[in-house]
Design a protein around this nucleic acid. Structure first.
Lengths: 240, 240
DNA sequence: CGGACTCACATACCGTGAGTACGTACCCAA
DNA sequence: TTGGGTACGTACTCACGGTATGTGAGTCCG
């Protein structure tokens, strides 16, 4: 219908100067990057609080004080926005875990340190909700996996590699990847069990004990020179 | 507004007699139960194929040859329908796993049998998509957990208990639950890694080896009389 | 056996929210 | 100065979950 365009108030001038941005970028580019960051930050909050499905784009753009036009200028859709949030949360978490493991040298000790960091991270609402809970369902397991592959999972895989080869064994990469995936799943579940518990501290203690028990078992085997082959299954039978 | 009711064709008479249902129920109750079953079955297919979010109620009721009125008569909403599907898939899976573990006596051997059954189950599209992928996001972790608690997870917990106490140790229930949760997460991830692999058989082999390795380590420790306490962590340091 | 009542749906409608088409203001380069 | 492109804003569509209400067959009771 005949629609008379109303003069739009200039929203291009943010209330706050957009953080000392990249110096090589023009003013417009800095403003643009600023609104994009804001969008992602607001989305992170709302996705965390209400979950992906119950966080509406209207609420997000309102929180960022822009409109859907801006959102769809920067992202192809809701899922793409989620992906950006996902990547931010995951990479920052992985970076922090790596940081905390920096100084530790002994591989087993390093594993324990990493475990504690991961347990702490997995209790944060953002990581819990966005990465663990909604991540697989929203991105699909395929994309979810390739995102993980180069962040939190990479850390776990690295630890697993050093631990498994610490006995001087040769372990092929597929096997390490499998082991890492198993451990990653175990850690995620462990994190859930901790954050869902009434007494988080005691729960975390139990998790550390359990994982420690498993690690000790592995360590004992590698010390004994037991190799990671199909043969290990034979040793399990008829001796209980 | 003034609306003239059109005569509705009787949909109460299904094309097929509703399977020799419960004899003690009236004809009406049997028909009703039949459409409810149909609804759940169709929903299971569509949820599996397109995922929860992309499976519309319109498509489901069309597939079941009813209308939304029928759906909302039997279920309070889409989520409740999903919950029914979830419960069906999960309980039937758990039942089958238990069945396959029936004959085995040796606890370690039993664990391996259960592992193989679980790996098979977790590769089925319905279980994968509905229980593993969409389950946590749709139901929320709380409900998801209490649903699991009395089916697939219960099986894992039972195995874990017999394995951990096979050395004659006393292990308190919280610890067993923690261990079981860790293992359940490990197995879920393992299943994903199998079903996502290009060579599923080889991947399953690797998973069995890895889990077997872990189990062997645990077995070795329990044989040595190592208890599940926080002390195990001390043994990990400075001996690599 | 027949009328009242209830159950198991069908129909039409609404609100919400993701996505889109299009217009416009502002910045920057030439 | 001006043309063009970028960075949005505005108004809209459409799909989908959910609801209000109607209706006729089944059931029960006298």
């Amino acid at each position: 219908m005949g629609w008379v365009p109303k003069p739009t108030v200039s929203k291009l001038v943010p209330k706050v100067p957009p953080l000392p941005g990249v110096p090589g970028a023009s003013r417009r580019q800095q403003y643009s990057a600023s609104t994009k960051r804001t969008l992602v930050e607001v989305a992170e909050d709302l996705f965390t609080e209400h979950g992906y499905a119950n966080a509406s784009l209207d609420a997000i753009v309102a929180g960022a004080e822009v409109t859907k036009g801006a959102l769809y200028h920067h992202f192809s859709g809701k899922q793409a926005l989620f992906e950006a949030v996902f990547e931010k949360v995951e990479s920052s978490t992985a970076k922090r875990i790596e940081q905390e493991m920096k100084g530790v040298k002994d591989p087993w000790d390093k594993a324990l340190t990493g475990l504690r960091s991961f347990l702490a991270a997995v209790q944060e609402p953002a990581y819990r909700r966005i990465v663990i809970q909604d991540g697989p369902a929203v991105l699909g397991y395929e994309r979810y996996r390739e995102q993980e592959e180069r962040s939190a999972f990479a850390v776990v895989q690295d630890i697993v590699r050093t631990v498994l080869t610490s006995g001087g064994h040769k372990v092929d990469d597929d096997m390490i990847a499998t082991f890492a995936r198993i451990f990653f799943g175990a850690l995620s579940s462990a994190g859930e069990s901790v954050s869902g518990a009434s007494d988080a501290v005691a729960a975390a203690q139990r998790v550390e004990t359990a994982i420690g028990f498993i690690l000790t078992g592995i360590q004992t085997l590698t010390d004994q020179g037991v190799a990671l082959t199909g043969d290990v299954l034979d040793g399990l039978r008829h001796d209980a």
